[in-house]
Every structure is written in C-alpha cells, then in structure tokens.
Design a protein around this nucleic acid. Structure first.
Length: 947
RNA sequence: GCCCGGGUGGCGGAAUUGGUAUACGCACAGGACUUAAAAUCCUGGGCCAGAAAUGGAUUGAGGGUUCAAGUCCCUCCCCGGGCACCA
C-alpha cells in the first residue's frame, strides 16, 4: 500500500505533459475550437502571488474540461513585461530591465509549472521581445495612418512620483493607479489615441455581450458616459456696466462685437429648462476668455490663473465652495426668453467636457442653485413637479374659506373613467391650530394620508401621500409668478395663485398670511426631475419629456456627448515600446517606414526619468538622431514610449499565430481562433485593459478588416480578489502575503488548487484562510487510499446513480464557474459511495471528472488502475438520466406549509397512494384538525395538507 | 449624492423554475486504535426549552403576496465595489 505523496507524482506528471506536448494546440484542427484565455502576468520580482492562482486555476479547470469535451482548446500564456517596476529596479541597481525581466520570467514560469497549469507554451509571447513589439509598433502606425493617433499639447494627468503622463483611466480618485501619488495637471505635448471616435461602437458592442457580467458592462457604460441633449448658442452683447467706463473702448468694442457676433455655445441635457437659464458659466479654460474684452479683465485673469493652477483634486472635491467671477461689461441673450443674462467664469464648469460652457438653470440644477444662491443670481423655476396618480387617486386643489375651513378636491377613487369627476372633502381649523396642522390632522384621520411640504423660491407645494408612497394629490401655490392654469397628466386641473392673490383673497385669514410668509423664508429645494413646464412661453403645460426634443430643435441642435476622453498614449519613461515616429524639421511628423520596424530600445546608462517631460531616451544622441525617411535630411526620433497597456491591447490576437514574422497574425489563424470564448481576469481592468483592447480590436475589425470579429471576448469571467486572512489587501509591507511556493511545498499543487476553488464563489472576494485546507487535503488522501485499495467489481445501483448525478452537477458547475460547489460535489460523492460496490470503469469516470481540478493525482491513479497515457486523452463521461432514477423516493409531508414528517414511497406511487400514506402518519395526524380543505401535491417532492 | 453587488450556524459557504433552509468543509464534543500524543477512522449536536421523545424559533429589520418565501413585491438598516461639480 502506497501513501499519497503529492510531491513525487506532481513532478512526474508535469514532466510527462511537457514531454508529450499534451496541451499543445493546433491551428489546423478539424475539431470545434475553444479559446480559453486568462490575463497574462507582469513578471515581477516577487513572483506568482495568490491573486494569480485563483484565475489561473479556474481557467485551467475550464481548459482541461473542454479538452475532455472534445474541443481543440487553446490555452496560452505570456508575459506583459514592459512597465515601471523593472525600470525602477534598474534605476536602483543598474541592472538592465531586459535582464531582470528575463530572470523574473524564469522564476514565475517555474511556479506556474509547479501548479500544473495546462498552458500551451509553444505559443508563449513576451511584449518586450522585439519580435513582438515590432507588431505593437506596426499597429500603432495603422492607428496613425487612420488619423486616430495624433500629437497634441494639452493639460494632462502627470504623476510626480513616476514622472510620466497618465491616461484618464489610470487616475483613481485623483491618485496614480500604480503608485498612489497625487496626480497633477501638466501641460505637455503628448501622443493620443482617438478612442473617443469609437465611443459609440464601444457602447453598442456591449449590447451583444450576453455572457459578460452586467457589472462590467455597466461600469464601461458609465465610463463612456453618453449624454444626449443639445448645443445651444447664446449671443453676446455689450451691456452698460456700473462705474466709469472708457467711452472710446466701449465704442471700439461695440463695433467689434456687434459685427463679429460672438456667441457662446453651451451643452445641456435639459433644453426643456432653457427659459429658466438665468446666467451662463464658462470654464476657466474656455478659449473665448482670451478673446472677450471685458471691463474687469484683471480680476477675471487672476481668477483663471488661480483656478487652472490648482490640482484637479481640489477642484473636484465635493465639499468645495463654489467660486467664480462675473464677466463685467457683457451679457448673453437667452434665445428662448430673450432676457439679457450675465456671464460668469467659474471652475465648477469643466473645460474638457461638452463645450466648456453651460447655461445655468438654478431652479432645476443643484450646482447652479448653489452658485446662484451664493452670488445672489436670479432663480426662475420653469418646471412644476408631477407624479403619476396611483390607485385611482388624482390631483386636487385646495380652497380656503373665511371661517378657517378648507375644502380639498380630489378625484373620485371610483371615477377612473372620468378624470374630471371629483369628490370633496371638507375640514376646518380648530381653535389655535395652524392650517398646516389642521390639514395634517384631517388628512391623517379621515383619509389616512400623509402630507409632505416642499418650498421653492417661487412656489410651494403639498404632496399628499397615502401609505407613504401612493400619491393622493398635489397642491401648488405660487409665490410671485403669474397665475397659470396648467393641464395635468390625466386632465385634472389645478390652479396656481400668486402670493399676492393668496394673501389678498377675501377668504384668506390672517393666519394663512402668516403661514405663507413663513414658507417664503424657508430654505428652498431644487427640482431636478422632469415635470410640467410653466413660464416657458408656448411650451407651457407641456411635459418635460415631450418638450425636450422640440426645444432642442428650436433653440439649438440636438447633440450627443461622451465622458470618455482620448487616450494619452505616451509615457516619459524608458521601459516601453518606442513610438515609431520621426520628427523632421522639413516634413514634420514622419512615421517610421514599416520595413524599418522594429524601432528597438537602445541600451542606456541612466534609466532615471528626467522629470521634465522628456524620456531618458532623449539623452541618447546616437539613437535620437536619425535621418528623415521622406527627405533624407537630419531628423530626430520620438523619444516617448508607449504605455504599459499597449502590448496587452492585442496580445490575444498574437497567440493565434505567435511565431509569424510576416504579419501580426495570419488571417486564417485569427479566423479559426477568434473570438476568445472565455476570458478570465480581474475586475480592476474593466475600464483599462478591457476597454482598451476592445477599442483596438474594433478598430482592426471595422476600420482595417484585419480581424474577423468586432468584439474580441465572448465571455468575461471576473474573479474576486484574494485578501489576507485579516480581510485586508495582501501587501509586502504588512507582511501578510501568502507565498504560493510554500503551499505547493506543504500540501501539493492539487490540494492548493482545489482549496483555492473551494474557498468561495469565484466572483466573490475571499479572505485567505488556511484553516480549511486540511479538509481538501484529507479528501484527496482518502480518494487515493480508496482507489488504490478498492477491489473493483460490479456497480451498485446507487454507485451508478450517484456517479451520474455527479456528472450532471460537475458539468453544470464548471459551465457556470461554480467551482466551490463542484468541489463539494466530489466530497459528497465519496461520502455516499465509498463503501459500495463499484466497477473500474466507474472509477475511471470519476477520475475524469476530478481531473480538471486535481490533475496530477488523477493521472497517477489512472495509471495505477491500468490506464495508458493521460486522462486528458479520455473523454468526458456521458450523462445518463435513467441511471439517476431511484426506486424509492422520499416525500416531505407538510401541514399548513410546515414540514411534519417524511414518508418513503415507491417512485411510481400515485398521488392518491401518497396521500393515504401521508395521512396515516401519526405526526401528521397530530396537526390535522378534521378534513383538510385543500391538498397541494408537488410530484416527487412534497405533499401539503391545508386545513 | 448616483449606479451596481451582497447580508444565511462559532467560521468559509450551499439551496436549479417559489417546494424538506443550513449541503460540503473547518472548528467543536464523544468514541475506536495507541503506553501516550499526532495521524487515521467512526459517531454527534448545531439557536431556545427538555433527561428524552419531541416542540418552538430562525436566512440584516419591518410589512405584504402565496397552500408554501433565503428566493417575489414595498419600506428601512448595514457592508463591499464603481463613478463623482460630466451640465
């Protein structure tokens, strides 16, 4: 009798797989393909960590499973090796990044091998290999030629610690995604990729991705941030401003402006509120600010300097007080109302979104409201809130009478067909009671209604609620607007009185006057929801939703904007792909001819970033100085490198044909393998790698026709991160990092793999906790003892039924990434059948099921049982539903929904037979009083007697 | 603030279309083997009451629908993640 010795057998089979090329996939297979991909690692000096083990194990189970299922499976691996750690290490030690990278790869590859992952190493890639980045550069040139790569000067995110520019996606809460340093704004000439050009395609593509988690799709959707609205132009005119004025200046400006007809273009999602636009705001970066001649030039200039100087974080802080300066001497004309309104510059408006200018509607936008309140700007409401009548209740109105009585009008509950029919409900003020209290009392007592009071600057409203949710009706009393009559949704009428009318009404008591006066001083609220328009000329009484497109059309042009920004694609660092561009004095920007690729990284002595916005490459004269491929004259190479995300934006394509030196991948290979069927990876890449690589793929498909599918990944399977046992992130500084090497050493790869999966649902984050690993360890040891000592014979019928149940469950669990329940399924199977008769065939079937999870032990046991070759060459056992059918089944017996007993019946028993047997139970009889009124029978499961 | 995801024993977690809640594992208790311990194997309870048979409660809180709710509906609380002055 041998003992389970993971160390011995694991090394043996890893060697076998390598020598026999068990997992090497073919581009010429006749079989259906499955492309199983897991994000490739950055080969850091620390080596493999638990964050890798989880997705790799899951992906490996899936890859082995589909091989058993008869698919040609590609499960490749490579190295995403450009990046800062290697470079920072080089700065410290002087070791070239290429060398440390190579060392790290060797180490991490050893670790991966020791976990027994079934990667196809014949397709291995390395993003820092010139044979690879030649094609990254080539692809960049395709973007350039398509006009999607361009150089521009602008304010970009700058990491002061890493001394490089960053993409928008790399800034998390104002901090550098990599190092956590506070990101600054810096004006630099940078390369950009025009991802915004593909905003709509990136958005629409998500619709077809049924097998992506909603969370991932939603996050990308929000990141792209599509807003539909309108661009509206406001004319700028001179205005008389207070104080002394240089008449000659006014004269010159007057002719200048009136003729030039300067306009400020704003973007809004709420053109329906345009009548409420009481001022304009332009961002401090707005280009028009440099052209406009205004009275308070100095003051505005100072403000702009201060606003654009501060760090982004301060500017977007939530609790920040709003600041701004009015542009004196000019006004804008509201194209809807014709009113002349002031123009302000304020940093709460962002220069790089929309048009960099807004129309402010303080009555219906919280930010504008805050600003208007602070600077005492007019607030003009143009939307009245409405809520759908529910349960037959409608909108009502209130009448106050001289003797303190009030009458409430509401739609009759039973008059749903006639919305005009109303019922009246009368009440009155008692003693010293306030009318508000009287209303509350009456409504509560008589109709069980709650009343909610809202005060706006220009009107106040009562919302009458039933059960705190159903709206019974609404009342509006205007404070100082013109009396209006509005049509409401179901045709009911309400009347809005001016404050004056209310106060002067003969029926209004002094008391009501007090109430109204009090309401006017209350802090106002802002209505941001759509409603019914008033104060809006011809659109009065129309619903916001209906008026919106009409008003967008009438006063401006409908317009869609996106929050997505163009991708800052250059980094001022050494260890990245050189951007294949030459700068020539005569010809300007000249792409490196394709036949001169790759532009290889030169050896440098100093890897230190200069911090001036120049890459260390700028110091290598013999590399920088080159000749222009257009004119032959002297020219300089682009010294910026590409971001870390470049190589990973297309690596999934290269795997299909990783050795090709003529193309980035042949069309045939891409046609066979693309798209990736299942892509395992982290949630943290949702708006980074996952978005970027979709962009590249969509570009290569739609624009270039080089890739056969638009969307690269059919299915995305995210994993939860592995935390340390204390629930915090594993980090070297805290010393709570679990080293995978120790685990494979102590328990073996099979146990570590299975336990990792058993810990919890794959998509959920888990705290690493070694306590439970003995359970899995014991389980595999038991399986070993069981199968090495078992005397095989015929299958017991229960063995067979349990086996087929296991086939079905394992199938389901792997397909739905529920690895934790798959593992418990194996344990349960063992517990159930270990003492029963079993055939050798069934044992082999069991091994095939377990194999994707614990491949080494299964190979060894298969060999001990007399099998030839690898379990991988077998096929997945076929599920037979007939085998799971049992002769005797257990039926739960309920009385009034509570389980009182269980009975065992023949599987073929009829409902009547089961009923009779169930009623015979003493336990059941105890709870049944008399004849049951109703009997619910759920076949094969339960019977419920309802008394 | 807005948008997602989640809340089940002492712990990790299971529960397919609404149909026996707590599978599987850890920890715990008792037993076997052993001089003893570890390892291994067997058994057990899981909250409350009870010696036991048994009964009752229970899936974050409260309400509702249903013969039947962890699962569906409403209100609220808490935790995790994403976005955040995006007009």
């Amino acid at each position: 009798m041998t003992k389970y010795d993971p160390k011995k057998i694991e090394a043996k089979w890893q060697k076998y797989w390598q020598e026999n090329k068990t997992f090497v996939s073919s581009n010429d297979s006749k079989k259906d393909k499955k492309y199983v991909l897991v994000e490739f690692p950055y080969p850091s000096g620390v080596g493999l960590h638990m964050g890798h083990v989880r997705p790799y194990t899951a992906a490996d189970v899936t890859a082995r499973y589909y091989r058993l299922k008869g698919f040609e499976v590609m499960f490749p691996m490579g190295w995403d090796a450009f990046g800062l750690p290697a470079e920072n290490y080089a700065i410290k030690t002087g070791k070239p990044p290429a060398q440390t990278t190579e060392e790290n790869i060797a180490n991490i590859k050893r670790q991966i091998t020791e976990f027994g992952y079934s990667f196809d190493w014949d397709r291995e890639i390395n993003t820092t290999d010139p044979n690879y980045y030649k094609w990254t550069q080539w692809l960049f040139l395709q973007f350039y030629k398509a006009g999607l790569a361009f150089e521009d000067t602008g304010l970009i995110n700058w990491c002061p610690k890493d001394k490089t520019g960053l993409a928008n996606e790399e800034v998390i809460n104002g901090e550098c995604e990599r190092c956590g340093a506070k990101v600054e704004k810096k004006e630099l000439k940078q390369w950009y990729l025009k991802i915004t050009e593909y905003a709509e395609k990136l958005l629409q593509g998500l619709d077809g991705l049924d097998k992506w988690p909603d969370a991932v799709k939603l996050q990308q959707q929000n990141w792209i941030g599509k807003s539909e609205g309108a661009e509206i132009e406001f004319s700028v005119i001179m205005s008389d401003s207070e104080g002394s004025r240089d008449s000659s200046l006014q004269a010159s400006r007057s002719s200048e402006y009136r003729q030039d007809d300067i306009k400020i273009k704003v973007f809004t999602t709420r053109p329906d509120t345009i009548f409420g636009a009481t001022y304009l705001v332009v961002a401090p970066e707005h280009p028009l600010l440099k052209e406009l001649k205004i009275d308070n030039q100095k003051e505005v200039g100072d403000y702009i300097e201060k606003a654009t100087d501060q760090e982004e974080q301060d500017r977007t802080r939530e609790d920040k007080e709003k600041t701004g300066v009015e542009l004196k001497g000019i006004k804008a004309v509201n194209p809807a109302s014709g009113e002349e309104i002031p123009v302000w510059v304020a940093d709460y408006v962002l220069g790089n979104y929309g048009t960099g200018a807004i129309m402010a509607v303080p009555a219906h936008d919280e930010r504008d409201f805050e600003f208007a309140t602070k600077f005492d700007l007019p607030i003009k409401p143009v939307v009245v809130p409405t809520k759908e009548p529910i349960n037959g209740y409608g909108v009502g109105a209130m009448l106050l009478t001289s003797d303190g009585k009030f009458v409430l009008q509401r739609r009759d509950q039973n008059a749903s067909k006639d919305p005009y029919k109303v019922a009246f409900f009368g009440g009155g003020v008692e003693g010293d009671e306030t009318i508000e209290n009287a209303l509350l009392r009456e409504l509560k007592e008589e109709l069980s209604l709650d009343i909610e009071f809202s005060n706006f600057k220009y009107f106040h409203s009562y919302t009458l609620k039933k059960d705190q949710k159903n709206v019974f009706g609404q009342l509006f009393v205007a404070n100082n607007i013109d009396a209006q009559k509005l049509d409401l949704n179901e045709g009911a009428k309400i009347e809005i009185l001016t404050a004056e009318e209310v106060l002067n009404h003969p029926d209004t008591t002094n008391f009501v006057k007090e109430v109204v006066a009090k309401y006017q001083t209350r802090s106002a609220e802002v209505l941001t929801e759509p409603g019914l328009l008033f104060n809006s000329g011809e659109f009065d009484g129309m619903a916001s939703e209906e008026a919106l497109p009409k008003m967008a059309e009438k006063y401006g042009q409908p317009k869609t904007t996106y929050r997505l920004r163009d991708w800052v694609f250059s980094r001022q660092r050494y260890w990245g792909e050189p951007i294949p561009i030459i700068h020539c004095d005569k010809d300007g920007i000249v792409p490196v001819p394709e036949n001169q690729l790759p532009v290889t990284l030169p050896e440098v002595e100093n890897y230190e970033p200069t911090g001036t916005g120049q890459s260390p490459l700028a110091g290598i004269d013999e590399w920088v100085n080159t000749e222009c491929s257009e004119c032959g004259g002297p020219a300089k190479r682009e010294t910026n490198t590409m971001p870390q995300w470049a190589g990973s934006s297309w690596y999934f394509l290269r795997y299909a044909d990783s050795k090709n030196d003529k193309e980035f991948a042949s069309k045939d290979s891409l046609k066979y393998w693309m798209p990736v069927d299942i892509y395992f990876g982290g949630m943290e890449h949702t708006t980074l790698h996952l978005l970027y690589s979709r962009f590249w793929n969509i570009f290569l498909h739609h624009d270039q026709g080089l890739v056969p599918v638009s969307e690269p990944y059919v299915e995305r399977v995210p994993h939860g991160i592995v935390l340390a046992s204390d629930g915090t992130k594993m980090s070297k500084s805290k010393g709570n990092v679990v080293n995978p090497d120790e685990l494979t050493e102590k328990y073996g790869a099979d146990v570590t793999r299975m336990y990792e999966l058993f810990l919890g649902p794959h998509g959920q984050m888990v705290a690493w906790n070694e306590d439970g690993i003995t359970g899995v360890s014991k389980f595999l040891a038991r399986v070993w003892t069981w199968l090495t000592e078992k005397e095989f014979g015929q299958d017991d019928s229960k063995t067979l039924s349990e086996l087929h149940r296991l086939i079905k469950d394992t199938d389901r669990d792997i397909a739905s990434y529920a690895y934790n329940t798959a593992v418990s399924g194996f344990m349960k199977f063992y517990n159930e059948v270990k003492d029963l008769e079993m055939s050798k065939d069934s044992a082999v079937s069991f091994l095939s099921l377990l194999y994707p999870f614990a491949p080494h032990i299964c190979e060894e046991l298969y060999e001990i049982l007399g099998g030839k070759g690898s379990v991988q060459d077998l096929s997945w056992p076929e599920y037979d539903a007939d085998k799971v059918v049992q002769d005797i089944i257990t039926i739960a017996v309920q009385v009034n929904g509570k389980v009182r007993d269980e009975i065992e019946v023949d599987a073929s028993a009829t409902e009547d037979e089961i009923k009779t047997q169930a009623l015979a139970s003493e336990k059941v009889q105890k709870f049944i009083a008399g004849e049951p009124k109703k009997i619910i029978y759920v076949p094969q499961k339960l019977i419920n007697f309802v008394g």
